[in-house]
């Protein structure tokens, strides 16, 4: 059955009117298409449990910046400090308050509060610790969300459904890592160059890093991992031969606030 776009929309619209909309319309006009789209692509990357190791010995300031920039670029994360319309004046305090960040760098004592002491090595003090969603095994954000807009996948990725989120920000109160951002205003006027393959967000919803689930589905590694030059190791904890398991075996690693029982899955080599 051949059918052009215009006809398809017309028939789908009419059938919606008589209650045949949604999946029914798809099934009648393009049988099998809905299911086909739900199946993973053949080259998709899959894992039992995704995890990341941040090797701070290899990560310098420039690499950290590269990781942050690429992530925010591919995910249409706005830079509130640089509005597209130069007439819009942003107060630095507002930029700070409304900032959206999926991945960012911070000092040792901010990344690991309580771990710092007076005599910490200068080397560690100066490190730009890359911080992102920890994709916890026991995520408090998922526990508190009243609509399951944030949920944990089988492979451990903590996802956000930004179309279901009601913007109550309970997850932000629940997250012990400050890894969640809320759109306090429309982010679109602050996206320099929109990536058309990834959705932009509206005001009023929460967002965060999701280990580039959309890239894994296409067989690509997370954007930050690709540009990190080996400083970020990403892989499957369920596979004993994976690079991430080997790295964890060969190095002493720490995690952020493990005492809270959230079981974070981003590990740091210091």
């Amino acid at each position: 059955m051949s059918i052009n776009r215009r006809e398809f929309i017309r028939i789908a619209g009419l059938s919606t009117l008589v209650g045949l909309g949604g999946k029914t319309a798809w099934e009648l006009l393009l049988p099998g298409q809905v299911e086909a789209q739900l199946l993973p692509k053949a080259n998709a990357l899959a894992a039992k449990r995704w995890a990341m190791v941040v090797d701070m010995k290899k990560l310098d300031e420039a690499t950290a910046k590269k990781c942050i920039d690429i992530c925010h670029k591919v995910h249409n994360v706005p830079n509130l400090a640089v509005p597209n319309d130069p007439k819009v004046k942003m107060d630095p305090a507002d930029v700070n308050r409304w900032q959206i960040k999926w991945i960012w760098s911070d000092h040792y004592h901010n990344a690991f509060p309580g771990q710092e002491h007076e005599y910490v090595q200068d080397r560690v003090q100066a490190m730009p610790f890359l911080l992102l969603c920890n994709q916890c095994n026991n995520p408090p954000c998922v526990r508190v969300c009243p609509t399951q807009a944030t949920f944990r996948r089988e492979d451990g990725i903590v996802m956000m459904d930004m179309h279901r989120c009601i913007g109550c920000r309970y997850c932000m109160a629940g997250c012990p890592y400050g890894s969640r951002s809320f759109n306090w205003r429309d982010p679109r006027p602050f996206i320099k160059q929109e990536n058309p393959t990834y959705p932009t967000r509206e005001k009023g919803v929460v967002e965060k890093c999701d280990f580039c689930a959309e890239r894994l589905a296409k067989g690509q590694m997370p954007a930050c991992v690709e540009v990190a030059g080996g400083a970020l190791v990403f892989g499957d904890l369920g596979d004993a031969k994976s690079k991430v398991r080997e790295t964890l075996k060969a190095n002493f690693t720490i995690r952020r606030k493990p005492e809270l029982g959230s079981n974070p899955q981003v590990y740091y080599i210091v």
Binding site: R143, V144, C145, Q148, A149, G167, C168
Partner: peptide, 26 residues
């Protein structure tokens, strides 16, 4: 006060459409 605090008050009914007993807010 709960409604005015929501970022997306138009989606308020999601709390009923997707009841989530593990959330205290529910």
């Amino acid at each position: 006060f709960i409604v005015i605090d929501l970022g997306r008050p138009d989606r308020l009914l999601n709390v009923l459409l997707y009841p989530t007993p593990n959330s205290v807010l529910f």
